[in-house]
Design a protein around this nucleic acid. Sequence first.
DNA 1: CACAGATATATCGCGCTGATACATATCACG
DNA 2: CGTGATATGTATCAGCGCGATATATCTGTG
Lengths: 179, 179
Amino acid sequence: MLAARPRSGYEIKRLVDHSARFFWAASYGQIYPELKRLEEAGLVAGTDASQGGRQRTVYELTDQGLRAARDWIARPPEVFETRDEGMLKLFFAGVIEPSRAAEIAGERAARSAEASRQLKAVEEMVRAEVPAEGPEYLPDTGSMTVLRYGIEANEWAAAWWERAARDLEKQETASKGEV
Amino acid sequence: MLAARPRSGYEIKRLVDHSARFFWAASYGQIYPELKRLEEAGLVAGTDASQGGRQRTVYELTDQGLRAARDWIARPPEVFETRDEGMLKLFFAGVIEPSRAAEIAGERAARSAEASRQLKAVEEMVRAEVPAEGPEYLPDTGSMTVLRYGIEANEWAAAWWERAARDLEKQETASKGEV
DNA sequence: CACAGATATATCGCGCTGATACATATCACG
DNA sequence: CGTGATATGTATCAGCGCGATATATCTGTG
């Protein structure tokens, strides 16, 4: 984030919450200590930008930091993990409370629908803020691709879980009839 | 997991690694202390099942524990988070190394393809282990639904990123030509 | 001028990750 | 029958992150 321009920890947090949050969240408790560690390592440099009584430290990327960022982006991605409580509950429903399975699938569908809705709002905002700087280079192709993926993946998931909820419900009433 | 049958911490870890891992991973450093906390809270009960010199503690769910599990599954899911380093890299490619964007998308596609392959192997195993106990009740509908979702979602994602990789590459060569 | 909301940083307990250490049991192979 | 590889089992630890809260100042609005 500092590669684009210098920012304070607070600005970074806000940017994360409005964009990367969907695939990589961050808390204050992570950001502030990390900025200090990065400064100690010489990858970022903090400048005091306090106004009056309000403290403020703006960090910028050093040359060494930019090199480290390039190294990082050149390496193949490693972390890829998910924590999805809905899937966990559905996974265990059979041995705990089978009758809730269909409901959980429905809740899962709603969650994905909501996520895609939020991401679409972000997309609208981005489009609005970028008037028309040439037909080609939008905010930037990579991040717009990520955003599009978020929207479409969640739409796909919402539809999938909707169908799963219907199927599970059907199976439930069917087995009740049989027993 | 203990609702299905009593298990040792080691068995729980193995089960997680072979199934839930894709949407909820767990480490020894989480499992063993957690079992102790649950025992202290009266939700599980540990029995010494050492054989010869090999220590072994098997935990089973208490009545109170089963009630707690039912309460848990009745509550709407809360946690839903993702950490996807590939998307993070693509998100930042524009300001760090735009020329890598297409590559990253390709790597992301490969990762999803690999995940769906692994999950299909799990599905095969499950099918093989369950001979044919009536046309209706498979290992159990909920967990099979979760597995199916994992497979299909990753297949969808692999195809999506494949296409994105092609598009990004096309855009790159196009803009090079213009400049 | 008050007050809500935005900007900004710090702090802290608790839990988790990832790795390693340590020990025993089992099994295949010659 | 021994040996080495693999599986079973538990424990531990440093470092880090989460989620919440505390504190303070600045800005805009009625």
